[in-house]
């Protein structure tokens, strides 16, 4: 595993959709390098013969009967929307249109 660079952090921030400022990128690259060095210790203990655990207790898929039950009204669902129009969430453009 290699150390994390400022460019790596910028790429990760893009993937995570966080528009970090230059100052934030500088600071975070240093902090993440220290944290990663510390957490990389898990490799010492994780040998090939150990199965991974994703969940504390065994999980089973859960389904429910396909019947109508009370749910939010359109007004309730839209009550926290930054913008709405015609009972729908109003969002910025999704495609480039030049």
């Amino acid at each position: 595993m290699s150390a994390i660079s400022r460019d790596d952090v910028a790429h990760l921030a893009m993937l995570a959709r966080i528009d970090l400022s230059d100052a934030e990128l500088d600071k975070m690259a240093g902090e993440l390098a220290i944290i990663l060095e510390s957490v990389a210790r898990v490799n010492e203990a994780a040998t090939d013969d150990v199965p991974p655990t994703s969940h504390p207790l065994p999980l089973a898929n859960v389904t429910r009967p396909d019947v109508v039950r009370p749910s939010l009204t359109a007004d309730e669902a839209l009550s926290g929307a930054p913008a709405s129009e015609q009972q729908r969430f109003s969002v910025p453009r999704i495609l480039d249109e030049d």
Binding site: M1, L12, I18, M28, L32, L36, P52
Partner: peptide, 28 residues
């Protein structure tokens, strides 16, 4: 922000096994 970036890194292709995969084993 720090933890989101760290998590994005741990889950990203090429690092998944070394970080997240190993962590899941230690959980066992």
């Amino acid at each position: 922000k720090r933890r989101i970036i760290l998590g994005t890194y741990a889950l990203s292709s090429g690092y998944y096994d070394a970080y997240y995969g190993s962590a899941q084993k230690v959980r066992t």
